[in-house]
Simulated scan of single mutants.
Amino acid sequence: MKLSGSTALVTGANRGLGRHFATALLERGAKKVYATARRPEQVDLPGVEVLPLDITDPDAVAAAARAAGDVDVLINNAGITTPQPLMTGDLGEIRRELDTHFFGTLSMIRAFAPVLGGNGGGAIVNLLSVLSWRTFPGSGGYAAAKAAQWSLTESARLELAGQGTLVAGVILGATDTDMMAGWDVPKNDPAEVVRTVLDGVEQDLLEILADDAAVATKAGLPGDVRARYPELS
C-alpha cells in the first residue's frame, strides 16, 4: 500500500489522533484527504476536504460514501470513552460505546468496502486499544466495545481479502489526546503513534503494535489468566 497519491478518509479528524492522521497523510503525499467529524466546523486543517459525519448515523455514513467515492484508504479513528463498569455502570453509556466502536465501525466498513473494491482494494485501518485484549477495573464498557471492534477487524479482514483490501488493526495504549486528558498516566506522543501506524500500512501489516504497552499486552495473552490479572490473586 502506497500512501503517496492515495485518497484517504479519516473519521474524527477534528482533534486528537484523527487530526494527526489527516496532517500526516498530506505530508506523505496523499492526493486528497477527507477530514470528517460530527461537528465539521471544528476541522481547521488546511488542504483537507471536510465532510460532516456521525458514524452512528446510517444516513450520514451513506452520504459520506456517496460523497467520497474515490477513497482507497479508510482510517476508522472516531471513538468515545465513558468509563463504565459492567456491573454497576450506566447501560445507556455502555450501549453508546458499542454503538460507536462496534456498530459505527461496521457501518463504515460496509459502506466503504464497495468503494475500496472498485478503486483497486486499498486499505482499512481500525484504531483499537490494548483494552481490546486486557480490561481494567472501571473500564468494562469501553473494553467490551474495543474487544468487539477487534473481532470485527478480524472478520472484515477475512471477508474483504478476496477484493484485495488490507484490513489493519492498530493496538495502542494511553496516548496524549483530549480523550485521555483526565488520566494521570504515561502517554504516547500522538504524532509518533501515527507515524508508526502509517509505516505499518505501507508495509502491509495486518496488526500494528503502536507502542510498548501493545507489545507487552500481546506477550501476556498466552499466559495464565491470573498472571495477566494480578487483581484476581
Rank of each mutant, 00 (worst) to 15 (best):
44 D>E: 14
28 R>L: 12
89 G>N: 02
118 G>M: 11
54 D>H: 08
133 W>T: 12
139 S>W: 12
72 D>P: 03
130 V>A: 07
79 G>C: 06
89 G>S: 05
93 E>C: 07
60 A>N: 00
56 T>R: 15
146 K>C: 09
52 P>R: 09
42 Q>N: 13
98 L>K: 00
51 L>R: 12
120 G>S: 12
47 G>M: 12
45 L>F: 04
79 G>V: 04
72 D>E: 10
131 L>G: 02
114 P>K: 13
101 H>G: 10
64 A>R: 00
99 D>K: 10
51 L>A: 05
22 A>H: 00
157 R>M: 11
78 A>P: 03
153 T>P: 09
34 Y>C: 02
77 N>K: 06
82 T>W: 03
20 H>C: 13
156 A>N: 04
53 L>Q: 06
106 L>R: 10
22 A>Q: 00
122 G>R: 07
58 P>H: 09
31 K>N: 09
131 L>P: 02
135 T>G: 13
125 V>D: 01
110 R>Q: 15
53 L>F: 05
130 V>I: 15
150 W>A: 15
158 L>H: 11
146 K>T: 08
38 R>I: 02
73 V>D: 02
151 S>F: 11
27 E>I: 07
157 R>N: 09
103 F>Q: 08
146 K>G: 06
84 Q>I: 08
47 G>F: 07
71 V>D: 05
118 G>R: 11
109 I>H: 00
158 L>Q: 12
93 E>H: 11
129 S>W: 01
55 I>V: 15
121 G>E: 10
100 T>A: 10
44 D>A: 14
27 E>K: 14
155 S>L: 11
54 D>K: 04
75 I>S: 04
88 T>W: 07
108 M>Q: 06
47 G>T: 11
73 V>P: 03
77 N>W: 06
145 A>N: 09
69 G>K: 09
83 P>C: 13
58 P>L: 07
75 I>W: 03
64 A>M: 00
124 I>V: 15
66 R>N: 09
117 G>A: 15
105 T>R: 07
46 P>F: 10
97 E>A: 13
153 T>V: 08
66 R>C: 04
111 A>K: 02
40 P>A: 10
102 F>D: 01
60 A>M: 06
54 D>Q: 07
22 A>N: 01
139 S>I: 08
148 A>T: 13
93 E>V: 07
115 V>Q: 01
63 A>R: 08
63 A>V: 02
30 A>Y: 00
85 P>Y: 06
121 G>S: 11
68 A>R: 00
79 G>W: 01
30 A>L: 06
128 L>S: 12
154 E>I: 14
36 T>W: 03
127 L>F: 12
113 A>N: 11
70 D>W: 03
91 L>H: 12
154 E>R: 14
65 A>I: 02
79 G>P: 04
74 L>T: 04
36 T>F: 00
116 L>F: 09
82 T>E: 10
100 T>G: 08
84 Q>R: 10
36 T>E: 01
83 P>H: 11
137 P>G: 05
61 V>I: 09
148 A>V: 15
146 K>S: 08
73 V>L: 15
153 T>A: 14
145 A>P: 14
70 D>L: 04
94 I>Y: 09
107 S>W: 06
20 H>G: 01
131 L>A: 10
75 I>Q: 01
142 Y>D: 03
101 H>M: 12
